[in-house]
């Protein structure tokens, strides 16, 4: 059972990274970005195209280019839906579904429905601690997650932009009265979110392979993590990701791997019933 839980924690870190991106956007814009997975997948495809898939760039250069591309796309996306956000979150949400479909279609158009290998540049290493196997990949995931969370924390706690972000997410009206630029904060959260998405995608793809649906499929778990942790809580969603990772692994191992989506559905509904404010929230029912 211990190895199952351990693997769940490692995979859970990836769900946390995915969920953090969703929550960043939700906290500032009060909407769900359904294009998150498809856009992150597009980033992963760009890395593949720039490295093994043809251009032959060094891995780091390709990742940097993909991150820059993701930033540019997120600015564009925000520009498209900024005005919708002022009216109703529902329409903005539908618009992100449309953007997700376009991104998915672009992936299919450019790269076809083939599947590719996209590994991290890591050595074949594995060692065993307390009977649990630990590979170079696991170490990479854990340390990347740790670094990302620390960096995010520092930016939000220590920078002016971070302060503005917190102000907007607590009370957008008061923040505007104080003269904060709402759209700058929105842009900050969209850009950060897109980078988190690409990082999560690059880390998730090596567990299987890259196809037009790999990253979007994986994002369901990220959505579940955000629901369980609370869409307005960054630490909540990070913990939610690990909870989802461990419980999914346990469920697949002991019950039925074919019913994973159903399990996630039940888990989300149960969590909404018992912890409507997210697992870290004391203010019950405050998510209205």
């Amino acid at each position: 059972m211990l190895p199952v839980i351990w693997q769940g924690i490692v995979t859970g870190c990836l769900y946390s990274l995915g969920a953090l991106g969703l929550v960043m956007i939700f906290k500032s814009s009060k909407m769900v970005n359904f294009a998150h997975g498809a856009l992150a997948g597009y980033g992963a495809f760009s890395v593949h195209a720039l490295t093994a898939g043809g251009a032959g760039w060094p891995w780091l250069a390709a990742v940097a280019a993909a991150l820059l591309g993701a930033i540019a796309i997120s600015v564009l996306v925000y520009g498209l839906i900024a005005e919708l956000l002022q009216r109703a979150a529902t329409t903005a949400t539908i618009a992100t579904l449309g953007i997700g479909l376009i991104a998915q279609g672009m992936i299919l158009w450019q790269y076809g429905s083939n599947i590719f290998r996209l590994d991290l540049p890591l050595p074949h290493l594995s060692f065993s601690i307390l009977g649990m196997a630990l590979t170079a990949y696991d170490v990479a995931v854990l340390s990347a997650t740790f670094l990302v969370v620390v960096a995010l924390f520092l930016v939000i706690e220590r920078t002016r932009l971070g302060v503005a972000f917190r102000a907007v997410s607590t009370d957008p009206f008061a923040a505007r009265v104080c003269g904060l630029s709402i759209s700058r904060v929105h842009l900050f959260s969209w850009v950060t979110s897109s980078m988190l998405g690409v990082i999560a995608a690059l880390l998730i793809v090596p567990t299987t392979f890259l196809s037009s649906t790999t990253v979007t499929t994986f994002m369901l778990q990220a959505f579940a993590a955000a629901v369980i942790g609370g869409f307005d809580s960054l630490p909540g969603s990070a913990i939610g990701g690990i909870l989802v990772g461990v419980s999914c692994n346990l469920f697949s191992f002991y019950v039925a791997p074919e019913l994973l989506n159903t399990f996630l559905l039940t888990f989300m509904l149960a969590s909404l019933s018992f912890f409507p404010g997210g697992i870290l929230s004391q203010r019950l029912g405050s998510r209205v």
């Binding site: 392979f209 196809s211 649906t213 791997p257």
Partner: peptide, 19 residues
């Protein structure tokens, strides 16, 4: 252990056969 065609991650199945 079975899996669905659309599944991409088979780690649960591998855990089972390994256990």
């Amino acid at each position: 252990v079975s899996f669905d065609v659309a599944t991409t991650d088979l780690s649960a199945q591998i855990q089972r056969v390994s256990a």
